[in-house]
Nucleic acid binder design. Sequence first.
DNA 1: GTCTATAGTCGGATAGAC
DNA 2: GTCTATCCGACTATAGAC
Lengths: 209, 209
Amino acid sequence: MSELAVKQVSQGVRSPVGREGVLDVAAKLFREQGYGSVSLRKIAEAAGIKAGSLYYHFGSKDEIVAAVLDVGIQVVHDSMRQAVSALPEGTGAEASLHAAIGAHLRALLDVSDYTSANVRIFGQVPQSVRDANLPTRRAYEAEWDALLSRLQQEGALKSDVDIRHLRLMLIGALNATLDWFDPARGSAEALSRTYADVFLNGILERQDT
Amino acid sequence: MSELAVKQVSQGVRSPVGREGVLDVAAKLFREQGYGSVSLRKIAEAAGIKAGSLYYHFGSKDEIVAAVLDVGIQVVHDSMRQAVSALPEGTGAEASLHAAIGAHLRALLDVSDYTSANVRIFGQVPQSVRDANLPTRRAYEAEWDALLSRLQQEGALKSDVDIRHLRLMLIGALNATLDWFDPARGSAEALSRTYADVFLNGILERQDT
DNA sequence: GTCTATAGTCGGATAGAC
DNA sequence: GTCTATCCGACTATAGAC
């Protein structure tokens, strides 16, 4: 028991420890610098340990990256699902889509280094790592397709738009905000209103207003 | 004169040669594999020469990447400007925007490895290389802002949308197609119609149809 | 669970022959 | 204009002490 206590104290000096702490700093670095620029040495240094010590927690760099990618999707998926399912029954298409868009943008821009790291580095990681992340991605995409299909069946969305295509357009547009979003210029909350409005109503001036 | 002739023949064996040929294969590789995965050795091999020989044409890897990035923007900029300026005077907002969107998507998805390489790797290259590409980018962005502002002043676009913001949304959405576009599933031409329609009119089912 | 030390690989870049 | 040969640094990963 005294041995355990000593161990815990001796770890207490460093900021983030353990497998989870390593993933936290890795996600942050990947988000900020991309995949290629972040070496195991950088991750270790940010976690307050030496590079070799990472191999106690992980078997390879790929394993670290894969874990970050998976968590990134899980976070945004949970956020979006909960936001939509929390709406009162009979909520209109506008409000439903706005809730989903808002949840996605908040996870991406406000909440999670994991989600933003995923969006930023997915196209940079080795093929095997991308493949490992695909099932998790598919589940999130299915959640969006279900929402959009429901709205279309209710007659709220144009009947001639392809759901898969619409989802690709929407998520692609939302993820692209990562490249230029600046919290000093406006909130993710305000952004989500703009995106929902543009996608729902377009940008054309209308006579019926 | 005979010496020149001999030189030209002796080069004729390899597929792409000279500075331009190197840039062509580099753009293709960057487009396909991203920045980090493409070494000078790979570029040299694809060009049919040895890695060291690249330094006759370029001073560094950064110089190659910077050249690819600049050409990439110039191509899409020229394409978009020409498409819009070729329209008859008095062309409506719908047709103008559709022309600009179509030109951007064609350059990105059909025509140019340089443009697609730019979109794909811009976020992966060293900061100094990004900075070098900024002036060229700014010029292209200004072209879009001018078009959108004109349409807004004509009363065709909603008066409350911020032009810069709208341009970021639009170009971001268009560039994101690079991640999933599959020519076997549809043409860039068809895509541009869909994007123009969604951005102009939205996806909501309307009473006035 | 973290350390030091190091093996092994691959990258960008340079020098000098042809 | 291209070659061969090579330097040097950085990276992932491993081995063994503590």
